[in-house]
């Protein structure tokens, strides 16, 4: 049991943070919100630095990819990185440099970053499907330039999908849940950092708003939410997306997403509802993530079933009654 990163993980985090300081950040996030598009420059930098291979690079590759995904999500970068580097290799069994997006059959819902992906992984009950896609397969969804760019798959395109075989669906569901947890934790952290920075500086009644206890306590609860989401996501990734842990991590992270959205906006006041202020880039993504893969209630019910109806999982988690 060790919560601090090992030497290799420390190097991964440091070099990724350096890379992100050059290719991502609040200004860049706002730029992409003003002029929607995909951050190919960031993707190229991540690829060149070897981050796309991260999940296969060592024994703790799943966790390492989750750590990298968290750092990337924190910056609200417009990239398929977490789906490509965390989910795809663990479902398909191999690393590729394709931009990957995630969907659930019958693929009628808008899909996060769908219009920019080259491969779509589709959860179809107990099997995962792969679909190579081109921009022609997609119609853009009008999101009012807020949150993740969304796109809808054109009817008929799904017929080209190939199955990865029975049982592959469970693997996709579990890693997708870890990805949701990692993304949500990173976005929450980014939104909270913005909010804390703002409330340290913004003065009303002659003092920083962040010095009022009524405000501090609300931020304190958000901090607990972010930290809990982060560590649950990392543990689930470390344990190879074990189904109960993946559902638990997604339940906690997605379950807190709307609270984080509401609280950060409320604590910002009117400025938070403007396009010039970057909060919306983080906050609206949280609301979108919350709806993926059946939403919060499904994560929670699956977490409950996978724990309380599974004697082996339960016995390992709690002291048996005397």
């Amino acid at each position: 049991m060790q919560f601090s990163p090992n030497e290799q993980q420390r190097q991964i985090i440091e070099s990724l943070q350096t890379l992100l300081s050059r290719h991502a950040g609040r200004e860049r996030a706002l730029q992409f919100a003003r002029t929607p598009g995909y951050d190919h420059e960031l993707d190229a930098a991540l690829g060149q630095a070897g981050f796309l291979d991260i999940s296969q690079a060592s024994e703790t590759g799943g966790l390492d990819a989750a750590l990298a995904g968290f750092e990337t999500a924190r910056t609200a970068a417009v990239t398929c990185f977490t789906a490509s580097a965390l989910v795809s290799p663990n479902v398909t069994g191999h690393v590729s440099d394709l931009r990957v997006a995630l969907a659930e059959a019958p693929v009628t819902q808008p899909i996060r970053l769908g219009g920019y992906c080259e491969m779509l992984l589709v959860l179809n009950d107990d099997e995962a499907l792969t679909l190579d896609t081109t921009p022609d397969d997609w119609t853009t969804v009008d999101t009012n330039r807020a949150g993740f760019p969304l796109a809808r798959l054109r009817p008929g395109a799904i017929t080209r999908a190939r199955s990865l075989g029975p049982g592959s669906g469970a693997r996709l569901r579990d890693w997708w849940r870890v990805e949701i947890a990692v993304q949500a934790a990173g976005l929450m952290k980014g939104a909270l950092d913005l909010t804390v920075d703002f409330l340290r500086d913004r003065r009303q009644f002659g003092r920083p708003i962040g010095s009022f206890q009524a405000v501090q306590h609300r931020l304190g609860r958000l901090a607990v939410m972010v930290e809990g989401a982060r560590w649950l996501a990392f543990e689930a990734a470390y344990r190879d997306a074990r189904p109960d842990l993946a559902a638990t991590a997604a339940a906690f992270a997605a379950g807190g997403a709307d609270t984080m959205f509401r609280e950060c906006h409320q604590l910002h006041g009117a400025i938070g509802f403007t396009r010039d202020f970057p909060l919306h880039v983080w906050s609206i993504r949280l609301l979108q993530l919350q709806q993926e893969l059946g939403g919060v209630s499904r994560h929670r019910r699956d977490a409950a079933q996978l724990t309380f109806l599974n004697p082996e999982v339960l016995a390992a988690a709690v002291t048996p009654a005397v």
Binding site: M1, Q2, F3, S4, V224, E227, G228, A229, W231, L232, E235, L245, A247, T248, A249, A251, F252, G255, V296, S297, H299, R300, R301, D302, A303, A304, Q305, T307, F308
Partner: peptide, 26 residues
């Protein structure tokens, strides 16, 4: 389903609490 969902919610909170406490031991 509502009760089951609340069990999942509470379990997730307990597990988050576990990790945040073990971090203190670390």
């Amino acid at each position: 389903p509502e009760i089951q969902s609340r069990f999942g919610e509470a379990w997730a909170a307990c597990q988050a609490a576990r990790l945040l406490t073990l971090k203190v031991y670390d």
